[in-house]
């Protein structure tokens, strides 16, 4: 009996289960190795998010200033709003990456 069972080719379902199990172990190892590069990506992201929002705020304010000819006041307000939007962006970026970490 045991000999017969051995010669049967393993079913595909069983094979894919074993494959998933093996992959799970490998992925866990890879994840711990990957955190360094993910942190680097996050760092790049935070800087550019903050800067881009500040730039957009200042440009919007400057544009409104040329429309209402009220230079430089709206630009100053725009920089303030832009900075706030930048902080919001950074906050969101961290929330997203924290959510990812919890899912893993």
């Amino acid at each position: 009996m045991t000999d017969g069972a051995k010669q049967d080719p393993p079913s595909l379902d069983e094979f894919s289960q074993r494959l998933d199990a093996a992959r799970g172990v490998k992925e866990a190892k890879e994840n711990s190795r990957r955190t360094g590069s993910v942190a680097l990506g996050r760092a790049f992201r935070v800087g550019s998010e903050l800067l881009a929002a500040l730039l957009v705020g200042a440009l919007l304010g400057w544009g409104l200033d040329t429309v209402f000819s009220s230079r430089p006041w709206l630009m100053l307000v725009g920089i303030l709003f832009g900075f706030a939007a930048g902080i919001l962006n950074v906050n969101r970026a961290f929330k997203e990456s924290n959510g990812e970490a919890q899912k893993d």
Partner: peptide, 22 residues
């Protein structure tokens, strides 16, 4: 609302500038 609008408008800029600058 202005903060959210600026945050939305900053998306294409940060997206494009990040890749280019790197």
């Amino acid at each position: 609302v202005p903060i959210e609008v600026i945050s939305f408008l900053s998306r294409p800029i940060s997206l494009g500038v990040r890749l280019f600058a790197n």
